[in-house]
């Protein structure tokens, strides 16, 4: 069973979100990277881009699949993980740390409430 840190929030589309004073770091879960297999490319949004919760904000690609990344909260993209350009495998190896994707300056605090807790996310993947 893959790791689901209790302190994070989750989207049903398998992104995780971590709030630090209104800046939300986004990545994909250990479960999601495992289902994708070895990632070969990560397409990230541009810094400055404004997204609404649920918007497409990137793509992760493995050899046999490609999957859209959705912004879990609304706001402006303020940072992207440039290390992924050369090392997409960070998402496989350390999905909750060095494998983060981008950061959003959140415009609607309440968006977080719409995300799943670790327990809820756990329940979702068990029922899949």
């Amino acid at each position: 069973m893959s790791e689901i840190p209790a302190e994070l929030r989750y989207a049903s589309s398998h992104e995780w979100a971590k709030n630090d004073d209104g800046t939300v770091t986004v990545g994909i879960t250990a479960h999601a990277q495992d289902a994708m297999g070895d990632l070969v490319y990560v397409e990230l949004p541009e810094v400055g881009q404004v997204v609404a919760a649920g918007d497409e904000a990137g793509v992760v690609e493995s050899v046999k699949a490609a999957s859209d990344i959705y912004a879990p909260v609304s706001g402006e993209i303020v940072a992207i993980n440039e290390a992924l350009e050369d090392e997409p495998e960070l998402v496989n190896n350390v999905p909750y740390e060095g494998g983060w994707l981008f950061k959003i300056a959140m415009s609607e605090e309440s968006d977080l409430d719409n995300l799943l807790t670790a327990d809820q996310y756990q329940a979702q993947i068990e029922s899949e």
Binding site: V40, Y41, V59, S62, V63, K64, A65, A66, D68
Partner: peptide, 12 residues
């Protein structure tokens, strides 16, 4: 780079 192609990416 097959993720560009229709058999994987379909409508995209």
């Amino acid at each position: 780079l097959q993720a560009r192609e229709q058999h994987i990416r379909r409508s995209k």
